[in-house]
């Protein structure tokens, strides 16, 4: 039982780190991205391949995954952040499909739908994992809190609230959006690496656009532009999903029901509480 609770806490910690990255994009900068799970996948694949093919140690694989994902995020961000609002969201949708195709079809590297099994676990015990993942989630929280109070955080909010005004005041809004994209990809890559070494198996189904929508749910429910929001959101979403299993539903029923629930949660949040549980910001004109 304690093992199971610790497992839940570890999963929540991984998602909290991921959602924290999306919070920087959606909450602080107002960018909807449906490719956060793709960058998470880039981190997971880099880490898994380095560790299982080249025998690289976890710390090095973890660092490479974070940097590799950040680099991918930088390239993507530099290319697409010149697009505005909803168009940007559509492009991230397209990119999510392309990334999924690459994970699924580049058989010589990713093994496609078969996935990569036998990724060496980084820690022996659940306790050690819990400590590590908690430290990671706290580090992500501190990073976002730090950004929240800094001039950079104000710049992000300025771009979100009035992009034209921010650029009139001499800020390069495109550069700002690119850096925040890179930063959020860095967090996604770190989370992906941890996921790969914790579960010890990855396949493309964990890195779909639908997975990104779950992340959006976490950020929206938890509250946008709030450093603790993503942690609450991740906890809420994971626990709701688990409670369906506890209700005695078989997986074949629980999975679609979970989807229905997330969809309804998003709609209700948008209709009645667009700022989420803890949010200090509501999407507005």
């Amino acid at each position: 039982m304690t093992d199971y609770l610790m497992h839940l806490a570890i999963v929540i910690g991984i998602y909290a780190t991921l959602a924290q990255g999306l919070n920087l994009l959606l909450g602080y900068t107002g960018i909807i991205s449906v490719m956060q799970a793709s960058l998470y996948g880039v981190g997971a694949y880099i880490s898994a391949l380095m560790a299982s093919q080249a025998g690289v140690s976890f710390p090095l694989a973890f660092a490479s995954a974070s940097i590799g994902a950040a680099l991918t995020g930088f390239i993507v961000g530099a290319a697409i952040t010149r697009l505005q609002g909803d168009y940007l969201a559509l492009v991230t949708f397209g990119l999510a499909v392309i990334f999924y195709d690459v994970f699924n079809n580049w058989l010589t590297v990713t093994k496609g739908p078969m996935g990569i099994p036998g990724i060496p676990a980084a820690f022996e015990t659940k306790e050690a994992w819990l400590v590590f993942v908690a430290a990671l989630a706290v580090a992500a929280l501190l990073l976002v809190r730090r950004i929240d109070g800094s001039p950079y955080g104000r710049l992000l909010r300025a771009v979100r609230d009035d992009e034209i005004l921010a650029s009139v005041l001499g800020r390069s809004t495109q550069r700002t959006k690119t850096t925040v994209f890179t930063l959020s990809a860095f967090l996604a890559g770190a989370a992906g690496s941890v996921y790969a070494h914790y579960i010890t198996f990855i396949d493309p189904t964990s890195f779909t656009a639908m997975e990104s929508v779950s992340l959006l749910t976490m950020v929206i429910i938890g509250g946008m532009a709030s450093p603790v929001g993503p942690i609450l959101g991740a906890g809420f979403v994971v626990l709701v999903a688990e409670s369906l299993r506890f209700a005695g539903l078989p997986d074949a029923t629980a999975a679609p029901l979970r989807q229905v629930l997330f969809g309804l949660l998003i709609i209700v949040a948008m209709l009645f509480r667009p700022q989420g549980l803890m949010g200090r910001y509501r999407l507005s004109k």
């Binding site: 107002g30 909807i32 609002g85 909803d86 969201a89 639908m210 929508v213 959006l216 929206i220 679609p256 029901l257 979970r258 989807q259 229905v260 629930l261 997330f262 969809g263 309804l264 949660l265 998003i266 709609i267 948008m270 209709l271 667009p274 999407l283």
Partner: peptide
């Protein structure tokens, strides 16, 4: 943006 996110919610709810 709110319309877009809500419509995404409808899509996944119906898919489920």
């Amino acid at each position: 943006t709110v319309f877009f996110i809500s419509s995404l919610g409808i899509l996944i709810a119906v898919e489920g």
